[in-house]
Structures are given as structure tokens and as C-alpha cells.
Amino acid sequence: MTLEVLYFAWLRERIGQPRERIDTAAETVRDLIADLSSRDDWHAAAFADLTAIRCAVDQQLADLDASLSGAREVAFFPPMTGG
């Protein structure tokens, strides 16, 4: 499966790019994080503390156990600070 993966705020800075297209066999968001973290030290460092990570699957907020079945875009970011 090919996914568009987006990063925002300090996750984007730690990973060093705003988005990347990846091939993965991950079935859930948590699997995807494990896959990304295994690729290099920057990803591993960015995902070191999962309590600081929020995500959206196809632009809808999702939890880490959300399925990636049929997903095209996954975004990772810190807790939001709008308003």
C-alpha cells in the first residue's frame, strides 16, 4: 500500500520534511509508526513519545489503533493549539 504521510509542527522539524510517500504493509496507525521508526534515527526520535503524537487518517482525527484499510493520507502532529 502506498500512503502519503504528512508531518506538522515539531514533528515536521524533527523528521526534516513536511511529507513523504511510502510503501508499507502497516494495518493500523500504530503499525505505521513502528514501520516509520525503523527506517532511520530521525523518525525514531520524532515518534519516541507516543503520548505527544496525534494523528489524522484521510483528514479525520483518528486514534493510534485506527485501521489504515483504504487510507490514502495519514498525518502526524503534536496536540493541537488553535483558538
Binding site: 506538522f8 509542527a9 489524522a56 482525527l61 498525518a75 502532529f77 503534536p78 496536540p79 493541537m80 493549539t81 488553535g82 483558538g83
Partner: peptide
């Protein structure tokens, strides 16, 4: 908006 809108 404070906690669930994607702004940083």
C-alpha cells in the same frame, strides 16, 4: 477549536 482543530 482549542484542542481539535489542526492549528499549531
Amino acid at each position: 477549536l482549542k484542542s481539535r482543530a489542526p492549528f499549531w
